[in-house]
Design a protein around this nucleic acid. Structure first.
Length: 628
DNA sequence: CTAGGGTTAG
């Protein structure tokens, strides 16, 4: 301390500055204003090295620089300095710490700083709400907002911009809009753009659209927001319309717009491989294909639209690739059941990049889809041994999947019991899924009990368990599960299948009568079912509706959306065309079997994407090897 | 003199 004062005096009298701290502060502020966080930190360290004591004005911009650099250790150092220098408690320093910890990934530390503050202003509350938004805690964000209002703190623009992304219930959205109007912020462009997304998240695409239409000077964010909104609503045609509308207004898309369009095509059930190719051409025409993120999402788009070949072509032509690029391609091979290719690519990748936990999910799930026990174990073990990555629940889930599909249910169970972390719903879900292929009442019950606690709102789990009981002839138990589901107000997701024919996509639900060709479809279907029966197909009525007679069950199987879509595809495409089907749920077991037979008797390839993976049916076989 | 906010690939 004495030494510091001596140096301070020297600085005071050597002509460099009258107020050493103030001049450092000024330099730091200049660096901060020019957007040079590394320089800010460097200046601060030099200031410390020269023993000039920082004050309350020095620290906030430096803490902010740590946040921008995502440099947690520097940020923690600053926090320590603040405490040691006696700067704390200081409202502004604490506010900057909240944001810094959040940006550096430490939500709990943000929360701790916030909790321990004696005095909080609108910035403190807004920053904490922002931290909740960044760390996926929407409920807490809304709670904080209510509390803040109760404490009579007036929200402002940043408060709303932080809170809006947390809203996904229309009641909350409407209430928030009332606050926004009250603060006269409803004409703010940023706020309006965010509101478009908010209503789309609430499932109110109509409101989102009206809000969007009401924005008179739309900027790039507005257009991207609307594109994302239509993507969320799975309205792919509308997404493309927005793009055209945007181009007509002479607004040039940037790479983020393009990412939105590509993502829409990847996610939508109503887009096609043809449209994927159209979008790819659009991307090339606008010279975005060398953008790393754009290239990577093009790979993903082709994977999701069923063309591994095109995906690989994009991958090979990229001038720059990173871990995400490789991971996308690896998981692409996995989704299409090409486990060996995925492994090969993974081994190749290791020459260039150090794998992270997500690449391991890609490669492990590729192994599980392809039934590669040996390769899967090797990868799983190498995670910790070679790369020091601690397996997370999703990695365990892949392993349970891998063991379970292969019929090693006992091992799967033991594996779960030996997990060092608590199994989550993905792990139990894998076990339940395994019991579907290799029926086992005891294990299914075990998995189900945990699942109904952890994930009680997921209709797929109930249906799966009920199907397992049915397949074991335990009709009462199956009905009990259906009743439980009803009592808990869990609604079965309506299944549908989409088939691509030429330029268009056609959607079918079970027993569909909406298609103009319906009569013809059912006639062709009856003929086709007779043909595959001659080939040895036996309907599996476990997958039919309950509480009906056997014969009706069989008929009800015939009208599953998958089969209708396939028949429609067969009827309306050239004999050398693949039939491309997209089912929103998992493909039904009976439809899976039927598809194999259909591919044989018609000598057509059927490419079927379900909610889990791709099935390539050809000549009586499926690429999943019935591991699904 | 200092703090909080928009989209961004697996």
């Amino acid at each position: 301390m004495v030494f510091q004062r001596v140096v301070g005096f020297r600085a005071l009298y050597n002509g460099s500055s009258r107020e050493p701290c103030a001049s450092w502060n000024l330099a730091i502020r200049r660096a901060a204003d020019t957007g040079a966080p590394a320089r800010v930190l460097e200046l601060y360290r030099r200031m410390r090295a020269e023993n000039v004591p920082p004050d309350g004005h020095t620290l906030p911009p430096v803490i902010k620089a740590c946040a921008q650099l995502r440099d947690l250790s520097a940020g923690t150092e600053l926090h320590r300095d603040a405490a040691q220098l006696g700067v704390l408690p200081n409202l502004i320093v604490s506010n900057s710490l909240i944001s810094m910890y959040s940006k550096c990934g430490c939500f709990d530390l943000s929360n701790k700083v916030f909790d321990e503050m004696r005095e909080r202003n609108v910035v403190s509350w807004s920053s904490m709400i922002g931290a909740c938004a960044q760390h996926g805690r929407p409920t807490m964000a809304l709670f904080l907002f209510k509390k803040m209002i109760l404490e009579r703190i007036r929200p402002n623009r940043p408060t709303f911009l932080n809170l809006i992304p947390c809203v996904s219930q229309v009641e909350d959205a409407d209430e928030l809009i009332r606050f926004i109007v009250e603060e006269c912020l409803d004409s703010d462009l940023f706020i309006k753009n965010a509101a478009v997304l908010m209503y789309s998240r609430c499932g109110r695409i109509g409101i989102a659209r009206r809000l969007f239409d009401g924005i008179e000077n739309k900027d790039l964010f507005s257009w991207s927001a609307m594109i994302e909104a239509f993507t969320n609503a799975d309205m792919f045609d509308e997404t493309l319309k927005v793009l055209r509308q945007m181009m007509a207004q002479c607004v040039d898309p940037d790479y983020v717009t393009v990412l939105g369009i590509i993502g829409a095509c990847s996610k939508s059930t109503l887009s096609s491989l043809r449209q994927a190719k159209f979008i790819h051409r659009f991307v090339v025409r606008h010279s975005f294909e060398q953008n790393l993120m754009v290239g990577t999402s093009l790979i993903d788009m082709y994977v999701k639209r069923g063309s591994l070949e095109s995906a690989r072509r994009v991958f090979d032509q990229m001038q720059e690739r990173n871990l995400v690029t490789w991971s996308t391609m690896i998981s692409g091979y996995g989704m299409h059941g090409k486990g060996e290719d995925a492994l090969e690519l993974f081994y190749h990748m290791k020459h260039f990049f150090r794998p992270d936990h997500i690449v391991f999910v890609s490669v492990l799930s590729a192994c599980s889809h392809a039934g590669l026990i040996e390769g899967g174990w090797q990868c799983f073990n190498s995670m910790t041994r070679e790369f020091g990555i601690v397996p997370r629940a999703e990695h365990y889930a892949c392993m349970v999947d891998l063991l379970g599909r292969a019929g090693k249910l006992k091992e799967a169970r033991e594996f779960i019991e030996q997990m060092p972390i608590k199994p989550d719903s993905s792990v139990w879900g894998s076990l339940l899924g395994a019991c579907r292929i290799h029926p086992n009442v005891e294990l299914a019950g075990l998995a189900a009990r945990s699942l109904f606690e952890l994930d009680s709102k997921n209709p797929g789990r109930y249906i799966c368990l009920s199907n397992i009981y049915t397949s074991l002839g335990k009709i009462d138990e199956a009905n009990q599960i259906r009743n439980l589901m009803r009592r808990r107000g869990v609604k079965k997701t309506d299944g549908y299948s989409v088939v691509e024919v030429k330029n268009k996509v056609y959607k079918f639900v079970v027993g569909d009568q909406m298609n103009p060709q319906s009569k013809l479809i059912y006639r062709e279907l009856a003929i086709l079912m007779d043909r595959i029966r001659e080939e040895g197909y036996v309907p599996n009525t476990n997958f039919a509706l309950h509480d009906v007679e056997e014969e009706t069950k069989e008929t009800s199987l015939y009208v599953h959306s998958e089969k209708l879509a396939i028949v429609f595809g067969l009827m309306n495409s050239a004999p050398d065309c693949d039939i491309r089907i997209h089912k929103n749920l998992r493909v039904c077991g009976d439809c899976h079997t039927a598809s194999k037979f259909i591919s044989k008797v018609t000598q057509r390839r059927i490419v079927m994407r379900d909610s889990h993976r791709f099935h390539h049916f050809s000549n009586g076989m499926c690429s999943c090897g019935d591991y699904w």
